[in-house]
Design a protein around this nucleic acid. Structure first.
Lengths: 103, 103
DNA sequence: GCAGTACATGCCTCGTCGGTTATATTCCCT
DNA sequence: AGGGAATATAACCGACGAGGCATGTACTGC
């Protein structure tokens, strides 16, 4: 398991990241919200940590996980040339609609 | 195999899409450029087609594959809230550097 | 020190995915 | 019609990943 793309392929891991957008959370909180077993969540967190997408802060027995969005830039930059392509076609659609409007 | 995320998890499939950005290509062309066997390429193309990321045009024995970037918007929209987060931190860095500059 | 809480880790199983080889299909050309 | 080119598909295999259960570990409060 290496690339950010593979890490995000798992829907559960995307859910975890989505939850962490609201701020740090302990593992048990994620377990409850995702309706999955604690070991499963811990495993996903391990993968996310290895990818640099989350970091941990320990507080007694609790481990608070926090989001680190930086590695997602890799996806964003890969997407960049494609984004130009579809925005071009959307622009074309828009011009077309505008032209329809004018008549 | 369903989501665009899973489809993009495969590095070879991303390579195929990258090649198709330059325009449509027949399968044999992809085989040569990717240094992989023809059945392997055909399988990836099948997955990409199922995801709506490519479409085919037949011309005699040749099948020309063409890129369809639209499904990638799903990733782009998922990324959107995160993009705001990291651009915020990048802005902070920039302000910091500007402040350094001024002294 | 002990019981309990919060989490990580190890081991096993099962499904799925990617690759390979062999074969089928379709079309062209002579 | 027959041979060859271009591609798809089938059958098989090996690897890997995700989940489940059991257990280990670390910390707390009494």
């Amino acid at each position: 398991m290496a690339s950010v793309f593979e890490v995000l392929a798992e829907p559960r891991r995307r859910e975890i990241l989505d939850l962490l957008r609201d701020g740090e959370r302990p593992v048990g909180d994620l377990v409850r919200r995702l309706h999955m077993t604690q070991p499963a969540v811990s495993k996903h967190l391990r993968v996310l940590r290895a990818a640099g997408l989350v970091e941990v802060r320990q507080d007694a027995q609790r481990r608070w996980y926090r989001l680190r969005p930086e590695p997602l830039t890799e996806i964003d930059t890969w997407l960049e040339p494609y984004r130009r392509m579809w925005s071009a076609s959307l622009d074309a659609l828009e011009r077309h609609l505008d032209a329809m409007e004018e008549r």
